[in-house]
Design a protein around this nucleic acid. Structure first.
Lengths: 317, 317
DNA sequence: CACCATAACGCAACCGCTTGCAGAATCCCG
DNA sequence: CGGGATTCTGCAAGCGGTTGCGTTATGGTG
């Protein structure tokens, strides 16, 4: 049925090892036989079986990518970039979704381990201990989590948060709310620490909140009651929900209150008003992560974020 | 380094074949030896190597999923559902992105072929011929494309389009524009045919357009000039772009013109006004596709679409 | 022309696991 | 209690490749 290296060997009158070498070490085989073998292979439609090859070489040319939620608009650009980078080096990409369950991370990594040369783990929810245990099974790089011993790609959300608050301060806002994310989130802490450091603005924390529209929507009342004129939201979904919630309370953005999000996801750009937000370099992160993995370099990188000013921020009344 | 079946065999004093069977045919091995082997395996941290297993069994327990653009909001829910379905049956999923290039489809299927038990192809752009050629290499199921000889999952966008136009008609609109997609798109033709069949409304086609916001935005002027009061857009992105474009022209939705989109992507739900749209059962399609693949049934299925009425449609002035 | 380095290829073992077949042990029943 | 049927396990070949080593041409050198 399927054509193997032996078929090619037989049809071209050489030993299988020669066929093998014409594909994996072409310089070791005479030019004329090489072209003959290649021709026969082409004609028979032979393609080396990567899984079989992996068995002896130990390299599968596959990578795993694990994210919390494929359908969360934050991830697709990252996945796409990771895929492109992998493809470019002739790697294939397993993609998996933990559905936000920490336990699934471990299980997936285990399941992948024999089948990939490494896995990239996005915003892992597992404990450091668990991750270190996994690191023994398979090389991996972590995105958005500081972890010693593993290659790491960070997006400097702290810097972005500072830019955002400075932007609000620059517009004249002196009291701004931080509509935070889930309790215990690394990102949430990062944002808060940075935001607090901006001089001249008083920061009031409203939260924790669910990291989606619902969370923002529910926080609207408390934001209004806090009397702030500007808001930094945990992410764009929260910002969008918040804007809607404020609308229900009769407050409009940016006239009554300015809102800036974080992530720069597509729905934010499409929102009305268009969301001012901190752009996370998700594509760069995805690309870089697979490059690190393939080249087996263990580094920790921090990617710059930047502020994208659109229509949801303005000077206070 | 990595623990193999032989290590387990040695450590538990049985032959490798017995170890093999305790994992792949437990009923063939005596209960007491089985528990012993299992215990040893557990202790050593043994996990069967699926790639090696695939070499002899011919089943990889991997599936491939090929989409045009991972970052297009239409696909992530489909990918997520496909992944969940695969996971549930202990399959892993390769995900690939063609970047809208037809040639990439063929290349990817080829590359996957030895490593998967089947691939699901979403909205393929390749010619029928090319697809039929690929079908010989690996089982696959196609989503959103009619193809004899291959298992097919269709989403009945025609029916949805009819519902949408009927909805507009029911509100009192008598002239509606169809802001179409790219020339030659199967979906576009499908939509048009169905929309034309609704009695009592005069349909004017505006297009072709790029299937993204830009396309809708650019079509705004022609929509206004056509004097319609209702619009069915090729998809939600086009609808969103159109709404913005109409806004620039001083027309508001739904007061001046009603707009309905197709797809029901997240940004549509988040848009202001919230988009009335035809919901495509993408999750169901993804799930079903992998189920068909795994069970090796070759069927052609048509999934129901439905209309989701939100805020972008109203009675004409 | 003898000699040796080098290039090209064949040989065979092996990667981790499965599976048809056969041998050994145990069982059941007349 | 003998003998056939079962159950369990071992043996070894093989899945599709790779690779260290040995063998045979070939070329270059003194």
């Amino acid at each position: 049925m399927t054509v193997t290296i032996r078929d090619v060997a037989r049809a071209s009158g050489v030993h299988v090892s020669t066929v093998s070498r014409t594909f994996s070490a072409p310089h070791m085989v005479n030019a004329t036989t090489r072209t003959r073998v290649l021709a026969v292979a082409e004609e028979l439609g032979y393609r080396p079986n990567r899984a079989a090859r992996a068995l002896t070489t130990g390299r599968t040319h596959n990578l795993g990518l694990i994210v919390a939620d494929i359908a969360n608009p934050f991830f697709p650009p990252l996945i796409k970039a990771a895929h492109a980078a992998a493809r470019q080096r002739d790697y294939h990409l397993f993609v998996a979704d933990t559905d936000e369950e920490p336990a699934a991370e471990e299980e997936l990594v285990q399941a992948f381990s024999k089948q990939v040369d490494g896995v990239v783990l996005c915003s892992p929810r597992s404990s450091n201990k668990a991750l270190e245990r996994l690191a023994e099974r398979v090389p991996f790089v972590v995105i958005n989590r500081r972890l010693r011993g593993a290659a790491t790609v960070l997006m400097d959300v702290g810097h972005g948060a500072r830019l955002a608050v400075e932007h609000l301060a620059g517009l004249g806002h002196t009291r701004v709310a931080l509509v935070s994310g889930p309790a215990g989130s690394w990102t949430s802490a990062e944002i808060r620490t940075a935001a607090e450091q901006v001089p001249g603005v008083e920061l009031v924390v409203v939260g924790p909140n669910a990291p989606i529209e619902r969370g923002g929507f529910a926080a609207a009342r408390r934001v209004r009651d806090s009397g702030v004129t500007g808001v930094l939201a945990y992410n764009d979904l929260v910002a969008i929900g918040l804007i809607e919630g404020l609308g229900e309370l009769g407050l409009s953005v940016p006239q009554d209150v300015s809102v800036v999000g974080i992530d720069d996801i597509v729905p934010g750009r499409l929102n009305r008003p268009k969301l001012t937000t901190v752009a996370m370099p998700t594509a760069a992160a995805g690309r870089l992560a697979v490059d690190l993995l393939i080249q087996e370099v263990s580094a920790t990188t921090s990617l710059e974020t930047r502020l994208v000013v659109r229509d949801s921020t303005a000077a206070p009344r």
